[in-house]
Write a protein that binds this DNA or RNA. Structure first.
Lengths: 222, 222
DNA sequence: TCAGAAAATGACCAACGGGTCATTATTGGC
DNA sequence: GCCAATAATGACCCGTTGGTCATTTTCTGA
């Protein structure tokens, strides 16, 4: 594999003397790990680089996470679960369903256009063959929750009579796929720039087309 | 990484005596490599497994491809380019644009729902951080061609007055993303089955919604 | 101030896997 | 049949890297 310079530390003033910071380490390690994993993938990520990124030595990483795989799992959980909680909070809002759906899109897009966070599904997917249990966990605790969230909003729209009937699973995938993919393209140097459309236009077009396809009301466009 | 049994050979009758088959080797190696790469990703794929999958010893692989990276590139080219040729042949058909667009979808879907072929974009993407030149090549020779193909059909539809105006790059991505993602989900055991919708419904729904969103004509649904 | 607890280090180990090459097996021409 | 020519082998080499642990440094509180 081509040599790549080690991941530049997130918050590393050089020659920092060693410090005991038991509480701060886990979060710093998770952040550094996500950065390295997102660039190199799981297998090609070096624990040495992750450690350097967090400003510690390699040995220290293993004081907090018992193995590379354990670190990988922890990264996924820490990066994803808070956003799911935030998403589910939306359901307590009793706005009309189409408005709720657009808010759901907006939140999802905020998460998935982040180049670090968008790496998570890509990583899980890429390693599904090597870590079937991680993929199963992800499906169980993330995908399922996302679908439930989307499904709840969709069901509300059906009751209100503003959405047309369709397979909710299919719709959910169709809603998410373009956002998941956008995250990937953004990080490729040259690709996104050449296509030269901004994320805003892309997401807005997607949401508009999707909502138009979903809607029962006769269309009125501007 | 968890131990996984070696890739079962595609066409390996056991204890096959060694044979000199200079012409057949490359294709067999490419097929075996794609299979192993698609399951394990690039970094975790072992040349030993690829060799076994093709019914040869590890050393033989290096007689045909000078390195793992060269094999990786060859796999990508061999898997993708023929389908691009086929796609571009569509343009010689002078059917109306919306019909052409649906044919384009159909061809794309045939390719991307294949669990092996759908691995290609995922692999390129996952390794973009480690092999920027491969990613650049892919973008240059694959993505660009796909966009040109889609763009040609779309432009025809604009001229015929049956498509509404929008950013062609955005539209192309939106058209492809759900198909690219479908390929990923299919290979995850349990995930696809639980969602229990078949690829047909998924793709048909996507195409219908997309075409409805793209169309200028007043909608008529059944 | 100092002693003991515990956080951090980095030299070290062992396994793994990409890549090599001297050797062996196969084949086609004569 | 026999003999180059060459396809194929697999034991071997060695750089890389996940993971360990004896040692060093930092911190706390008495």
């Amino acid at each position: 594999m081509p040599v790549t310079p080690p991941a530049s530390a997130a918050s590393l003033t050089p020659a920092q003397p060693r410090r005991r910071r038991k509480d701060a380490r886990p979060a710093e390690l998770l952040a550094a790990a996500l950065e390295v994993f997102s660039v190199h993938g799981y297998a090609a990520a070096r624990m040495e680089d992750i450690a350097r990124g967090a400003g510690v030595s390699k040995g220290t990483v293993f004081l907090y996470y018992e193995s590379k795989e354990a670190l990988f799992r922890a990264v996924i959980e820490a990066a994803v679960l808070p956003h799911l909680d935030a998403g589910e909070a939306l359901l307590r809002d009793d706005a009309p369903a189409d408005r709720l759906m657009r808010e759901l899109f907006e939140g999802t897009q905020r998460v998935l256009l982040d180049p670090l966070l968008s790496a998570i599904p890509r990583l899980v997917d890429a390693e599904a063959g090597n870590f079937p249990e991680v993929a199963a966990y992800y499906h169980e605790h993330v995908t399922r929750r996302v679908h439930a969230l989307f499904g709840a909003v969709y069901a509300r729209g059906l009751r209100e009579g503003c959405f047309r009937a369709a397979d909710v699973g299919v719709l959910c995938q169709l809603a998410l796929a373009p956002l998941l993919y956008a995250g990937n393209w953004r990080r490729l140097p040259g690709v996104w720039e050449e296509a030269c459309f901004d994320p805003e236009t892309y997401c807005r077009t997607h949401v508009d087309m999707f909502m138009r396809g979903l809607s029962c009301a006769p269309e009125k466009q501007g």
